[in-house]
């Protein structure tokens, strides 16, 4: 699994993904880690199948005991079905996840890790000296959903928003926004159910100073491409499966 540093000034943001040994048939995912001093937060740590390569990749950057916090943007298996394994590797860790998913996430096996429910309005967490914000992104696509914003690094980990379903060979960054649109259009139209929720999120996110918008699938948006994405997403009609039924 490849590891790429997105930010390294006092604390680090590392993106893990593009695993060439990923089993066939499972969707490619991006995992992120904020490393600050003796603590680390793993964001959307992935499914069972990526657990071993993910942990292996982390151990080049941090010790097991440094991983004190996990974050799950929502409850999907590609996000957090590895929870039962993390539970045995990190029995003293905390899992920050939407409050509504606690009873569901425990089905993955959570006997040791502490569940830290995120309220609907969002909250903050400190990883050592770094303050991070959990930004509400409900119904994008899950009914309880959060993104993680780091005001110092100016990075928004945007979960499934901005996702594109691509191969493990695809570049890490969007390098031509117009050419990238076909790769993400169907995903957003089908997976995102609500125009109202989408516009509410865009309004909130436009107030943030973002240098990198880092989704859980596909490529990272950098600089002006973040604004281009927000503009494109704003005019996109989502929830199309309902329309298809008419």
């Amino acid at each position: 699994m490849k590891a790429t540093k997105l930010f390294d000034q006092g604390h680090q943001w590392i993106m893990f993904g593009r695993d060439p040994d990923k089993p066939q048939g499972i969707i490619d995912t991006n995992q992120y880690m904020v490393l600050a001093g003796n603590r680390a937060l793993l964001m959307d740590p992935g499914g069972i199948e990526v657990f071993a390569p993910m942990l292996g990749a982390i151990l080049h950057h941090a010790k097991v005991e440094q991983i004190t916090d996990l974050f799950a943007s929502h409850q999907d298996p590609d996000i957090i079905s590895s929870l039962g394994l993390w539970d045995q590797a990190l029995p003293h860790a905390k899992l920050h996840a939407p409050w509504i998913w606690e009873g569901f996430l425990r089905h993955f096996g959570m006997n040791n890790i502490q569940y830290a429910p995120i309220p609907d309005e969002g909250s903050r967490v400190s990883i050592g000296p770094v303050d991070l914000e959990f930004i509400p992104a409900h119904y994008l696509h899950a009914s309880g959903n959060f993104h993680v914003y780091d005001p110092k690094a100016k990075i928004l980990m945007s979960g499934d928003v901005g996702a594109a379903l691509e191969s493990t060979e695809s570049p890490l960054f969007v390098d031509g926004f117009e050419e990238h649109i076909p790769k993400m259009k169907m995903f957003h139209q089908r997976w995102m159910p609500s125009n109202r929720a989408k516009n509410d999120w865009i309004k909130r996110v436009r107030q943030l100073d973002i240098e990198y918008m880092a989704p859980q699938h596909g490529r990272i948006f950098k600089g002006d491409d973040v604004k281009r994405f927000l503009d494109w997403f704003e005019q996109l009609d989502v929830g199309v499966a309902i329309q298809a039924e008419k």
Binding site: H60, L85, Q88
Partner: peptide
Amino acid sequence: SVDAFRRFDSVRNKNDKARYIGSMSIA
């Protein structure tokens, strides 16, 4: 536990050059 041990073992075997591989031993 057996599943976790096998996956941990796979991490240890495939990443013997990782800087912090030693921290796996407690887990």
